[in-house]
Simulated scan of single mutants.
Amino acid sequence: MNYKARRIGLLKTKRINQTLGTELEDADLWVSKAAHRHIALDHPNDYLTVLPNLSRVIEDPAYVGQKPGQADNFYLFRKIHDKDRAVLIAIGIRRNRYGTYNLRSAYAISDANIQRYRMAGHLRIL
């Protein structure tokens, strides 16, 4: 399969900054060929659910998070049509040389894992 880079959409950062205390600027979010391949091969059961929902996650995320020790990334979540799952996308916190953000990974996550992230303090409602 040919994994192509593709633009996901404009990442609006105001709510993310308010919640995480960051100073990100609005910019396009892209999934690179390598990240696209990673999602397809490392998360094959989620691929057909995740890919069509990437733009929905950045347009209206329900949660934002950042794990301690992973200051280079943050993640956004949004529930999908399946009530017990959400799409998680991990995004590099620094823009690349083209001025855009890189999607690092994306996969489906269970509601139980969302609650675990919240209880650990790694996830906040937007």
Score class of each variant (00 low, 15 high):
86 A>F: 05
110 S>L: 07
49 T>K: 11
11 L>W: 03
25 E>V: 14
65 G>N: 05
60 D>P: 04
24 L>G: 01
112 A>M: 08
41 L>K: 14
125 I>W: 08
112 A>Q: 12
106 A>N: 02
53 N>L: 06
19 T>C: 11
80 I>K: 04
13 T>H: 03
97 R>I: 09
69 G>K: 05
40 A>F: 10
23 E>A: 13
26 D>H: 09
96 N>D: 14
44 P>T: 12
117 Y>E: 12
70 Q>Y: 14
121 G>M: 01
102 N>T: 09
50 V>Q: 04
75 Y>H: 06
87 V>M: 03
93 I>M: 15
124 R>F: 12
35 A>W: 04
18 Q>I: 05
53 N>P: 02
51 L>K: 11
75 Y>C: 00
61 P>A: 11
112 A>V: 07
123 L>A: 01
80 I>C: 12
48 L>M: 11
9 G>V: 03
90 A>C: 12
78 R>K: 15
21 G>F: 01
24 L>F: 13
51 L>R: 10
42 D>N: 13
85 R>H: 12
35 A>G: 04
92 G>I: 08
112 A>R: 14
124 R>Y: 14
56 R>E: 09
94 R>L: 14
48 L>T: 12
59 E>G: 11
8 I>V: 15
21 G>D: 08
98 Y>Q: 15
81 H>A: 13
124 R>V: 04
54 L>K: 01
119 M>V: 09
95 R>M: 09
70 Q>T: 10
74 F>D: 03
21 G>K: 01
102 N>Q: 11
12 K>T: 10
36 H>C: 02
80 I>R: 08
17 N>T: 05
70 Q>S: 12
39 I>K: 01
76 L>A: 07
110 S>M: 09
94 R>V: 07
97 R>M: 08
76 L>R: 00
13 T>W: 07
60 D>A: 15
21 G>Y: 02
61 P>Q: 10
90 A>H: 06
31 V>W: 00
7 R>I: 03
104 R>M: 09
57 V>A: 00
60 D>F: 03
104 R>S: 04
108 A>W: 00
88 L>K: 13
20 L>E: 00
58 I>N: 05
53 N>M: 07
103 L>T: 02
87 V>I: 10
9 G>P: 06
54 L>A: 04
6 R>I: 00
99 G>M: 07
114 I>P: 00
56 R>M: 09
82 D>T: 08
103 L>E: 02
67 K>W: 07
89 I>G: 02
60 D>M: 09
117 Y>T: 00
30 W>H: 10
49 T>Q: 11
82 D>G: 04
109 I>K: 06
64 V>K: 00
92 G>S: 10
73 N>V: 14
124 R>Q: 13
41 L>G: 10
4 K>Y: 07
72 D>Y: 12
41 L>S: 13
4 K>P: 05
62 A>S: 13
75 Y>F: 15
59 E>Q: 14
32 S>D: 06
10 L>P: 04
100 T>I: 08
